[in-house]
């Protein structure tokens, strides 16, 4: 396949780096007609024994958490039915009345209604009760956080974002990420599944972050700062050919390859065995 351009491989990642722990970011998940708003836990339970997980797994403070909630809301607003009930799964996070009201107001802007708060913290439960939400205080959240315990292999439903992913934004998702818009230099996408960018991919993208080498990165314009698939890392060629064609990055015989979408489809998609 001559049209393949070979990005420069730089290094192998250590086995655990980039792994998306499912609870590390704010997430919306629909379940049985309602929408769950899952907050990442305040205390990271496994950071003590695996410090290699790095900063990405450090607990978020409120401003960061708030930013993520707003970004997810702004990026996905076309998909929610008005008046859908939202159940806030706050886990062990401390939220005060004002923060709960801020979340409710942000949801209301997208015509979503905060219906119920699940928490394992007494103080959060008290705050929620004071603010007038129904609460469910629980010590175990097993049924609401299925991925945290079992089935680390099964991917979450894709995360769909319709906005520009700007510098300083890192989007991590234990499934496939679809961006309708550009990702700018200084941004990072980390997906356990594939990454699709219907726009220009100019930041860092890591597909198959849990180790799956069959994952792919696809973009209308692939001008990345860096690409990663599973444990492979590649920089774009120093002088990338200016090709305004959709391209696909995948792991081939000698590391990460890039092919135009048309060539990729001819070579790979018609031979399922590869």
């Amino acid at each position: 396949m001559t049209s393949d351009s070979l990005p420069t491989p730089i290094t192998q990642l250590s086995p655990n780096s980039g792994e998306v722990s499912p609870g590390s970011q704010v997430r919306f998940k629909s379940e049985g007609g309602r929408l769950l708003l899952l907050l990442p836990p305040a205390a990271d339970t496994h950071s003590a024994d695996s410090p290699a997980d790095g900063p990405a797994d450090w607990p978020l403070n409120w401003p960061e958490l708030w930013l993520q909630i707003k970004q997810r809301l702004n990026g996905g607003d076309r998909f929610w039915q008005p008046q859908t009930a939202v159940h806030l799964v706050a886990r062990d996070r401390l939220l005060d009345v004002r923060q709960l009201q801020a979340i409710e107001a942000a949801l209301a802007e997208q015509q979503l209604t905060l219906r119920r708060v699940y928490t394992s913290r007494r103080q959060t439960a008290v705050a929620a009760a004071t603010a007038g939400y129904s609460i469910e205080q629980q010590t175990s959240l097993a049924h609401l956080t299925p991925v945290a315990t079992e089935a680390e292999q099964a991917l979450e439903e894709p995360l769909y974002l319709q906005n520009t992913v700007r510098s300083g934004t890192e989007v991590r998702h234990p499934g496939t990420i679809v961006v309708l818009g550009d990702t700018n230099p200084g941004s990072r996408l980390v997906a356990a599944g594939d990454i699709f960018v219907w726009g220009r991919l100019r930041g860092v993208a890591h597909a198959g972050s849990a180790g799956n080498p069959h994952c792919r990165i696809m973009a209308l314009h692939l001008e990345p700062t860096q690409l990663r698939i599973a444990d492979k890392v590649a920089l774009p060629p120093a002088n990338p050919p200016v090709r305004y064609q959709p391209e696909v990055a995948y792991i081939g015989a000698s590391g990460i390859h890039i092919a135009t979408a048309a060539d990729f489809a001819r070579t790979y998609l018609s031979h399922p065995s590869r």
Partner: peptide, 15 residues
């Protein structure tokens, strides 16, 4: 420009 991009993201998130 990189910093401006970051700031735009923060402005958008803050309505």
């Amino acid at each position: 420009v990189r910093d401006a991009d970051r700031v735009i993201g923060l402005l958008e998130a803050n309505d």
